[in-house]
Nucleic acid binder design. Sequence first.
DNA 1: CGTGTCGTTGAGGCCTGTCAACCTACGTGG
DNA 2: CCACGTAGGTTGACAGGCCTCAACGACACG
Lengths: 259, 259
Amino acid sequence: MPYGDSAILYKIKKGSFGEMLEVETAHEIGHLGPLIAKLGLHGRLTERDETAIADAPYTLVDYQRNQRIATFSKVPPCVYVLTSGIACLSIIASDGRRQITRLLLPGDFCNAFDAKPSASMEGIDILAPTRMAAIPDAAFRHISASSSMQNTLLASVIDAAASARVLIASLGRGNARSRVAFLLCDLARRMTERRLLKASGDPLPLRQEHIADATGLTGVHVNRMLAQLRRERLLSGGGTIVQIADMPGLRAAAGLKQL
Amino acid sequence: MPYGDSAILYKIKKGSFGEMLEVETAHEIGHLGPLIAKLGLHGRLTERDETAIADAPYTLVDYQRNQRIATFSKVPPCVYVLTSGIACLSIIASDGRRQITRLLLPGDFCNAFDAKPSASMEGIDILAPTRMAAIPDAAFRHISASSSMQNTLLASVIDAAASARVLIASLGRGNARSRVAFLLCDLARRMTERRLLKASGDPLPLRQEHIADATGLTGVHVNRMLAQLRRERLLSGGGTIVQIADMPGLRAAAGLKQL
DNA sequence: CGTGTCGTTGAGGCCTGTCAACCTACGTGG
DNA sequence: CCACGTAGGTTGACAGGCCTCAACGACACG
């Protein structure tokens, strides 16, 4: 391992502790495409910016499902960017239940900008096998020095804050059906923007328990809401598979005028 | 009026339309202190930064209670900073009910960084008589050019996003009592940080209806929760007055481990 | 004194949580 | 091949928290 010790992490729920669940692989090429795709949504990157990202040094780190990451402690310090899989920021309430506050997709930062697990009470949960690129801080400072990158990063954080506030409205004013509909719409939109879904009907990478933790509902009730949305032909698929069958209808079910 | 037309706005709820509810006054000195206080929470401003803010040109605009502002259209374009009073960002759900997504306090931006009413489905509601300083964009660019200001502004937006996610956890996992407790704790903390409350027991500038719209509850149920929290000696005051009597107890009632 | 705003209280119903049981799919080991 | 365990999903019965509707009180203001 090129860089000191690895991330501090522990499995949530019952499961085998002790074994280190992250796997670090050698540097490879071409894993920062999702980051470029994401930043391109929030600002116009120059040719120089894109090549700087593409040429950045990084180390790949793999995480397994159900890990919870409290802090990243790689030496030298690194900026972690999710490159494949799916994770989330979550907060554990005093009754022990988890609230997912944001889904982290390929291209999202895991310990800067989008997320700062050590600074807040949030942790990062891995929802499916996930890979991150760890870019040394010094290299990242070089990437982000240009004014176009500065503006783009600021815009992406402003957008994240605005998205969080729309989610606040969904949780505060929506019933169970509209909360589930909103979550699925929002996830599909974000994944489509980044070319992570080929067609809008592709299955979404979420278990019912994840939907429950993101909407503030219970798994049992999420199951009933999914069954209802399937009866209404807004969703398709069965069992573990959640597919959007009628996006306009689902947006209407989400209950917020726009999105 | 020195600058073209005024803000596009309309009153929410039944009320007298037609009359222009904003009042513009001449430039005065010393109204940007709250902005310096807020930014100082997120980064270390240089002497130059602070004097640049203090010397910035601006026009004061007053707003009355219950106005809803959709867009700011002053010419030339301006950055609006709240200097006194209280406002909020809100989203109107499809059933017509309002969800307050963020309270705007003196020092907060109203059409940049903290809020971008024209870009999202959010609007700004004035909760109490409020005054804003409108700084011409060109002057603001001059203020925010330094790297210390850039870093501070970025940090303040990252903090706003993190705060929004904690609120998501409160709405998603909390019951009515803990949601109300969280809102009051959070508001008191923000106001205390900016020296807007002298003592922690000072009355908070919120009506029960505002608390209801911010917590996603109904006014009737907020009333019952406030009565309960008063019986528990966590709050004091009666009628319109909401005062925190036991901050540690209220934090515990909020139900999130930290904050 | 009329009007409007805001707060307070009571009765009843619905939505969602809780508990429990069962099912399917899948992998493992004998 | 089957027995077994686990994870995830499905369904039913019941309870409780919050909403809804309604009426009333307190207070400010013209």
